[in-house]
Design a protein around this nucleic acid. Structure first.
Lengths: 131, 131
DNA sequence: TGTCATTGAATGACGTGTCATATAGATTGA
DNA sequence: TCAATCTATATGACACGTCATTCAATGACA
């Protein structure tokens, strides 16, 4: 049977584990965000969406599917895409089979930016995720 | 010597690892945040600060030291404390040795809320952090 | 075919975090 | 002891994410 002391110990360990996760998450996200912002003038979320669009280039990418592949809210995705579109990096294409849907495509500029930014992104992941 | 294919594989693994971290971070933080919000009407960050203050009760807690123990910005901490103070959960005490500094103390209400909220918090950590 | 529910996406109000700055108190050194 | 500098905290402008809502298109079914 667990004693009070056991439970307190377990709690402290849980909290410590959680703080480690938090700080490593913030450290990594912050480093990537600052670097992308400085060198490419886009934030981390913008890059993540760009990265997802780039990944699914062949299978033409609906807004909807983005929402399923990121922890971002539907409305957050919509706004990120707004910014990417304004920056000329992606374009929304109407979908004829279902006119509510939209396809996303990288523009030439988007493809170019993604391919150089991705190098930076992977390098920072590698540096921060340890090993 | 690493081939192009090797590097691509490594990159995909890195990205996958990162997405796992992100989604598990958001899942956990979101679950705790929603639960605390619903049951105690405070957000995750408010609780974290409350938790830190509670931890250092004996050694009387300066604002400054909070900043060192959380990934939050100094100004974020200041605003979180604002809200906690408005909610009557902590109070700022001026420090006579250095009048720029502030000590934080839990109020009775703060201590009470913290002790019940902490149970919820640990339970959700346990449920979400796996193991 | 006309209603009712559902779905994909956009939008507006709002809360909170960040950066840069302000302010007041402390410290240093001439 | 006075200026210059530094330090602890607060504040304001701004960016972005969330929730709730809206809108148009689709589907279901009588």
């Amino acid at each position: 049977m667990a004693t009070t002391r056991d439970r307190q110990l377990e709690d402290r360990e849980l909290v410590e584990q959680w703080r480690d996760i938090q700080s490593s998450y913030f450290r990594t996200a912050g480093a990537i965000d600052r670097a992308l912002e400085a060198k490419f003038d886009i934030g981390l979320n913008e890059f993540e969406i760009l990265d997802l669009v780039a990944e699914s280039e062949e299978s033409s990418c609906r807004m909807k599917s983005l929402g399923e592949r990121t922890p971002m809210t539907q409305s957050a995705v919509s706004k990120v895409v707004d910014r990417l579109e304004k920056a000329g990096l992606v374009s929304r294409q109407t979908c004829e089979e279902d006119r509510r849907s939209l396809f996303l495509e990288l523009t030439e500029a988007g493809r170019a930016l993604h391919s150089t930014a991705a190098v930076e992104h992977r390098a920072l992941l590698k540096a921060n995720l340890g090993s």
